[in-house]
Design a protein around this nucleic acid. Structure first.
Length: 419
RNA sequence: GUGGGUGUAGCUCAGCCUGGAUAGAGCACCUGGUUGUGGCCCAGGAGGUCGCCGGUUCAAGUCCGGUCAUCCACCCCA
């Protein structure tokens, strides 16, 4: 084969796309019902928005970005995530001047040069929401609630768990980092090489290391929740209170620290145990400093992104619901003279919103009916020389195997019969 | 980036261990049984550089090496 799709990328084929449409449409409908509007941002941005946005020392920026030089020498990057671009657009379009709060959702492809695996691709799709302008824990609660309802709506109720944590404001985090480093430094012999490196760069992420000896050491490490400033503690408690009052099930997990640098206060993940090691299907949190850091006015914000490939994978496991491209009517024609009249009927039906399938090669009636059956068409119209002469076509109900004769130009009767 | 599994028809896979002549099955596709009526059944047909490159051998789908892809785990993340 001469041309092949590049590594880590995938086509979404007819037969699969129907499920994608269902999930995407449900997401749109749910998110819009919560007042989020779609914002479409480009796939390509200048590299530095991701460096400042995501953080220079993160894996994404250090080794996973698809970056290249534009013709004028400036560095561009295929977006590895959506938040940085949305923040750029939020600032550039001065949304903070237009409305007290702004709520956006976006969907589309993201790119990260990782080792491909099930549920992890180099080109993958995310849907995300970003909520700017509210520092209330109620805003955090609402997006978690919204995600929860979304997952219920696509049938994930029993398969998804919510894990939440707080990593506090900057003051809390600095105090905690110091405490954590003080605790870990004497024990660093037992930590893996990577964690030893993280000790100097990003000690928080030692907490989610899966290495056994690291885990044993971190079990008794100081907990972030004990180091929250008063304001951060109040914020987190309020979030928990709201989730309790609204009966949203969750689990506080002090090991969730997130890999992107912009998070503050609330962080959360929606996880499943049905996808192997790719267990996070949605994740997010609050990022109160990012807008300012990227050159906008100080603006609190909260949001999340969900991974569509993983959700589709899980949905395939959970739902035996068939997703099939529908064919309402199949038109079988026999003899060259019948093609144009058949096409006229097809056009009429299509203009009335019907999905109509018609052959363009002359074929036996038998093979045409077989095709209609394969397409699962509700009705087959049959028009041959006899029908042309008599001016009445055959309308076959494929489920009941019954037939009706209807005038060739009587579209009204035809439509009411097949509806 | 590290370790392991897999790669044979459009799809799912058997054959590989223990090398041997035209490489198989099911599903899907086409034709016919029914001269103008689908599904079930029956008969027939078409479809394969056995991922790719090299090596061993009289002989390689089968053994060996490399490479690419994919899957699983690590890592990271959605």
């Amino acid at each position: 084969m001469k041309y092949k799709i590049i590594r880590g990328f995938h086509d979404i084929l007819p037969g699969q796309i129907e499920r994608w449409h269902f999930i995407e449409n449900t997401a749109r409908q749910v998110f819009e019902s919560y007042g989020f509007n779609e914002l479409r941002i480009p796939v390509l941005e200048s590299t530095d928005i991701y460096c400042t946005g995501i953080g220079d020392t993160t894996d994404i920026v250090e080794k996973e970005m698809y970056s290249f030089d534009d013709r004028d020498g400036s560095s561009l990057t295929l977006r590895p995530e959506g938040t940085a671009g949305v923040v750029r657009s939020f600032i550039e379009n001065s949304f903070y001047k237009k409305t007290p709060v702004s709520k956006f959702y976006y969907m589309g492809p993201m790119f990260r040069h990782e080792r491909p695996q099930k549920g992890r691709y180099r080109g993958f799709n995310q849907i995300g929401c970003e909520y700017f302008g509210s520092q209330s824990a109620a805003a955090d609660a609402e997006i978690i609630l919204m995600l929860w309802y979304f997952f219920q709506k696509i049938g994930f109720t029993d398969s998804v768990k919510i894990e939440i944590n707080s990593i506090g404001d900057e003051e809390s985090r600095e105090n905690y980092k110091t405490a954590l480093v003080n605790y870990l430094t004497p024990l660093k012999e037992g930590l893996c090489d990577q964690c030893n490196r993280k000790l100097g760069t990003n000690p928080l992420r030692i907490l989610d290391c899966k290495n056994e000896s690291c885990r044993e050491i971190t079990v008794n490490a100081p907990k972030i929740t004990d180091y929250l400033s008063e304001a951060s503690g109040v914020h987190f408690n309020k979030l928990i209170q709201i989730l309790d009052d609204l009966s949203v099930p969750y689990n506080v997990n002090d090991k969730i620290v997130r890999g992107l640098d912009y998070y503050t206060e609330t962080v959360f993940e929606f996880t499943t145990d049905k996808l192997g090691s790719q267990n996070a299907i949605a994740a997010g949190g609050r990022y109160n400093n990012l807008v300012e850091k990227m050159g906008g006015p100080p603006t609190p914000a909260t949001g999340f992104a969900l991974g569509l490939e993983r959700i589709v994978l899980l949905h395939e496991q959970l739902s035996d619901k068939e997703f099939k491209f529908p064919t309402d009517v199949y038109i079988a024609w026999i003899g060259e003279d019948t093609f144009i009249p058949a096409m006229k009927i097809a056009t009429e039906l299509r203009n009335n919103g019907k999905s109509v399938y018609i052959e363009h090669e002359s074929k036996s009636i038998k093979s045409q009916l077989k095709r209609a059956n394969k397409l699962d068409a509700g009705y087959t119209l049959i028009i041959g020389e006899e029908e042309l002469k008599s001016g009445r076509i055959i309308v076959r109900n494929m489920k009941k195997s019954s037939e009706e004769s209807i005038g060739i130009e009587d579209t009204g009767s035809l439509l009411s019969y097949i509806n």
